[in-house]
């Protein structure tokens, strides 16, 4: 009798293993989902009141998300002239008078650029130091919304926004008020916009 039970059990186990052999591997676990913001703090920011920036313009990325390419495309659409380089250093500043850094971390973008997050941060710190000593205006932008928040993106936000002369932020990406807070604490004029389409009006208005 016990032999029969064992045989049945073995047959059952065999069926189970057959039934599970086609299962695909587990989906990747979420690493850093952006949690919905509880409430926006009451950081008081002021918008830009007068044009301050000058051409030539150099556009770069802060974190290698493709948002810098989208901003470059928007600038092209409104007829602004610019150079764009996602991996530029202070050696590439040339005669630029304004540096636009479009912030947003992307692991795919970092992979595409062949650089890691720490290398990107080091590049940006060197670039910003070079731009400051050469007297460039720095515009920090965050236009990727909620998708460009989280551990990776946030790494780049503080060091870049703190050094900015002006900031443009799509509100969906700043529901926790991180960027508004940096701008308020450092007296940096910031325009909060509802969508990337408003870049077509606020960005040209910053240029003399």
């Amino acid at each position: 009798m016990s032999k029969k039970i064992i045989t049945l059990l073995l047959a059952g186990v065999m069926m189970l293993s057959l039934a599970a052999c086609g299962a695909k591997e587990a989906a990747p676990a979420p690493s850093a989902p952006s949690a919905p913001a509880a409430s926006a703090p009451a950081a008081e920011t002021t918008g830009l009141t007068e044009a301050f920036a000058e051409s030539p313009i150099l556009v770069t990325s802060g974190g290698q998300s493709a948002d810098y390419q989208m901003i470059a495309t928007v600038m092209g659409k409104v007829g602004m002239d610019y150079e764009v380089s996602n991996l530029c250093t202070s050696a590439d500043l040339g005669d630029a008078k304004t540096l636009i850094i479009v912030v947003g971390g992307s692991s795919k973008g970092l992979g595409a650029a062949g650089i890691d997050a720490d290398g990107e941060l080091a590049r940006l710190e060197e670039l910003i130091a070079g731009a400051e000593s050469a007297g460039l205006s720095i515009i920090a932008m965050h236009t990727g919304g909620e998708a460009r928040r989280g551990d990776l993106s946030d790494k780049f936000i503080t060091p870049i926004f703190e050094k900015a002369d002006y900031a443009i932020v799509v509100t969906a990406g700043d529901e926790d008020g991180l960027m508004a807070g940096i701008c308020a604490n450092n007296s940096i004029p910031m325009d909060a916009i509802a969508s990337i389409s408003e870049v077509t009006t606020v960005l040209p208005a910053a240029f003399k």
Partner: peptide, 21 residues
């Protein structure tokens, strides 16, 4: 980039990623 901006203008929340090499 150009297409993605049009999608964003049309109210579609879309992020753009470059393919990792």
């Amino acid at each position: 980039s150009e297409g993605c901006i049009e999608l964003l203008l049309g109210g579609i929340d879309m992020s753009l990623e470059q393919s990792p090499t």
